[in-house]
Amino acid sequence: MQSTIKLIVKIIIIICLIVYLLIIAFNMKIIKSNQLIQFLFVTEKNKFNWIGITSVLAIISLTFTAWDSRRKLKADLISKSRIKWMDNLKGHIGLYCSAQQAKLVTLELIFRYLKDERNENGELNEFGVEQVNINTAKLDKIEYDVSNSIALIKLNLFRYQSTDDEIEREILNSVEAIDKKISNYQDLLTDEKYEKGYEHGMDSEMKDIDKLLHLSANYFKIEWEKAKRGE
């Protein structure tokens, strides 16, 4: 917005200067009263020198063209940089959401095996042990993806500490809130509260993840408009 205003102001100044030069072209009194103008725009025969005004207009045009080219180049660089940053952030948020969804499903499977795969003595049967071990190993890999994606999201939204952008704060708050809720769910496994974990539904967490995806989509729409304007 500010760059657009500056552009408009400069164009108005140039137009005013051109109009002024055209006025003096038809007003010999002004020319005669100003030695510099007379030197530039009056011939030896006391006639108006069109070559002078043409040269001045050409210089003004070249100056404006050079400035506008630099402005467009700067806007293009900013736009490309913002688009690349958006693509990276989309990937981090996408990884975070998919990893958290996978974590929820894996935890639910572990709790189901711990509940259903027991023998008459109440001990976990061979199949149950195998599946719990397999899914526990998966859980370790998923937790790495979750932690890594959280760190990358925070790094890419570093402006959060010094910005008034409400939607960025919402995204980070949502990321942290989802992680906390799912971590509390995982604590039931650590504390061996298998029955409670088995009964725990994951609808609430899944809805929170969907809300984060929707919030992020709105955020990227706003950022895309900025990228198109070269901001």
Rank of each mutant, 00 (worst) to 15 (best):
I31M: 07
T136E: 12
N49P: 03
I8A: 15
F220Q: 01
T43A: 04
G91P: 03
R118S: 01
G128C: 12
Y20I: 06
L188C: 07
L213Q: 10
Q38T: 08
I222L: 08
S69I: 13
L22G: 15
I11Y: 10
A66Y: 15
L114P: 00
M86Y: 00
A75T: 06
L21A: 10
L152D: 06
Q131G: 03
V56N: 02
S216P: 01
A66Q: 09
I83G: 00
L77C: 07
I5R: 10
V105W: 09
Q38W: 08
I11C: 06
W50N: 05
I24N: 02
L17N: 14
I11R: 11
R70W: 15
S79K: 12
A137R: 14
I37K: 02
V132P: 01
S147C: 05
I142L: 11
I37G: 01
D191V: 06
I110R: 02
V129R: 07
L21H: 09
R229W: 05
N156D: 14
I93W: 00
S3C: 05
K32W: 07
N156T: 01
T54Y: 06
T43W: 14
T4G: 03
D165V: 05
N119R: 05
F158D: 10
L212M: 08
E231I: 07
L152V: 01
I53L: 04
F48A: 01
D187K: 15
I167S: 15
L21G: 11
K10Q: 09
H92F: 11
K221F: 01
W50H: 09
L189F: 15
G197T: 04
A58P: 04
K141G: 01
L77I: 15
E108K: 15
H200P: 01
D179I: 08
N173Y: 08
S162Q: 12
V146C: 07
K226W: 02
I153C: 04
L139Y: 13
A227T: 00
N156C: 04
K72L: 14
G122M: 04
E225T: 08
E225Q: 13
I167D: 15
W50M: 07
K29V: 07
E120A: 12
F64G: 03
E44I: 10
S162W: 11
I110A: 02
S79A: 14
R118D: 01
S174M: 10
K45T: 15
D116K: 10
N119K: 03
F48H: 01
E166Y: 09
Y20Q: 06
M1R: 08
D179V: 09
L107V: 06
I30K: 06
F26D: 08
V105K: 08
N133S: 11
T163M: 10
F48W: 06
S61L: 09
H200A: 11
S3T: 14
T163Q: 11
G122E: 03
A227S: 12
E170V: 07
T54P: 00
S149I: 06
S61T: 12
H92C: 06
N88G: 08
K226T: 01
T4K: 13
S147E: 09
K193H: 04
I142D: 00
I171L: 06
